[in-house]
Amino acid sequence: MNITLEIWRQKDAKSKGKFVIYKLNDVSEEMSFLEMLDFLNNTLISKGESPVAFDHDCREGICGSCGLYINGWAHGPAHLTTTCELRMTKFKDGDKITIEPWRSKAFPVIKDLIVDRSVFDKIMQAGGFISANSGAAPEANSIPIPKDNADAAFDAAVCIGCGACVAACKNSSAMLFVSAKISQFALLPQGKTEAKERARKMVAKMDEVGFGNCTNTGSCETRCPKGLKLTHIAKMNREFITAKIVAEKST
C-alpha cells in the first residue's frame, strides 16, 4: 500500500520542531508499525536525509519504550496494544497517518518522536520499592498470600511504564501509572510495611514533576496497552488519604 506520513521532526530538545510530510510507497500490510518506520528510515538514509528518531527496544509489548501518538491515539487505533504490536493491517492504501510524540510538560521531547520519561524513574525512586535486608532470598512460600491478592497485585504489576496514560489524558496526568505501582505493592504483605509512606512520597513526586491532576475522565483506562483500570487510582487515593490522616506530626 501507499501511505502519507505526517511526522513530528525536532532536531533536539531546544529546537522548535515541525511536522514533515513523507510519501511512502510499497508498504506491506504485514509490516509492524515500527517496521514501517524502519522502512521509511532506510529510504531517508539512502537519500542522505536524517532518519526519524523513535524509541523502541523489545518490540514485543513488554518494555514500554515505544510510545507514539498515532492519528490521535496513544499507541495507535488498536486496543490493548503497544505501538510495536500495532500492525499495518490497521491502515489502508492512501491513508494519511499523523505521528506525534507524547505531549506532556513532564515528558520533554529529546528528538523527533523520542521523549524523556525519566520522571517515571524519579517517581519510582521516591517510593516504588520495598526495603529488604540483603542476603539469601527468603523462602517464597513462608508468607501466605491469598490468591486473589496475588492476582490483583500482578494485574497492577503488568504496567510497563510506557506513559500512554499520560499521553492520552487530557490533563497529562500520571495517576494510572503511579497508582499501578502503588497498588502492586500495597496488595502484598511485603509492600504493606511501607505502604502509607510510599503513597505519600510517590504522589508528592508525581505532583512535583509537573503532571496534571486526575479528572476521572478514564481516557487512560481506554488507552492503556495493559488494560489497567481506574480502580487502581481509587486504591491509590485510599492509600494516600489514610496516609495523610494517620501520619504523625512531622518533627
Binding site: 511536522f19 492519528n71 490521535g72 505531549r103 506532556s104 497529562s172 496526568s173 496534571g212 481506554t222
Partner: peptide, 20 residues
C-alpha cells in the same frame, strides 16, 4: 489551570475516548 499547564504543546490530531 494546572491541567492546562501540564500540556503546553497540544496534539495536532486527537481522537478522544473516555469513560466519562
Amino acid at each position: 489551570l494546572q491541567n492546562w499547564g501540564a500540556r503546553p504543546k497540544r496534539y495536532k490530531k486527537r481522537a478522544t475516548t473516555q469513560l466519562s
